[in-house]
Design a protein around this nucleic acid. Structure first.
Lengths: 104, 104
DNA sequence: TCTTACGGTAAGCGATGTCTTACCAAATGC
DNA sequence: GCATTTGGTAAGACATCGCTTACCGTAAGA
């Protein structure tokens, strides 16, 4: 689930594509012209982002517009919200007894 | 900055290590016994997590305890908070005029 | 001091991932 | 109908990444 989402964000180019899509929907070819990689490479990245539910696409004639998927982003945000609260709790607990012997 | 953090989270094993550290500080060897990879592999993952400021470590005798770094997690949380608000704004704007010709 | 436990690092290998070029299908315009 | 535009996909080259084994330094215990 969010597993595929984190894998999708593991690549710098895909993160840049996602940032670009935040400015609005854009077609594949036009998107490719803004990046230093070929159009097929962009298509492959978009496929991964799509499978991770981070973007959606729709056909307009021969063109295909991609845009961010708010639901996917929301899932990530919620995930890191939980992660942060857990991290804070773990940190506070560790600060209480910093010389734990870890049960060895 | 958060660039290294996202790269660090791009690997499933590192994400699992981070989840484990949420339960409390733990030494490298003990951590390695809970995973199906060797101890050096764990050390390498921990180094990446450390450079991304997602974990901190401290020496206890010959052992070395690792724990989550709340500040690093907080940075991620803040990042996705902003990402989500931007995604929501982009989605609303796109919903207003869905048949944009994208200035071609 | 000698031995043991712990963990970081280097080197090499195998797998995974990203890029390219080439090819194809679908929709539009003439 | 045919040509053009757009973009998805396949195949292969290449780089990157994660893992292992081997080795080393350091700290505690006898």
């Amino acid at each position: 689930m969010h597993h595929a989402q984190m894998d999708a964000l593991g690549d710098a180019t895909r993160r840049a594509i996602l940032e670009r899509l935040l400015e609005g929907p854009i077609a594949v070819g036009e998107l490719a012209r803004e990046f230093p990689v070929s159009r097929p490479a962009i298509s492959q990245h978009l496929r991964i982002l799509k499978r991770a539910h981070l973007v959606t696409d729709r056909a307009i004639g021969t063109r295909r517009l991609y845009q961010v998927n708010p639901e996917g982003i929301e899932a990530l945000r919620a995930h890191f919200d939980r992660l942060w609260s857990h991290a804070l709790a773990a940190f506070k607990k560790a600060a209480e007894k910093p010389t734990t012997k870890e049960g060895r």
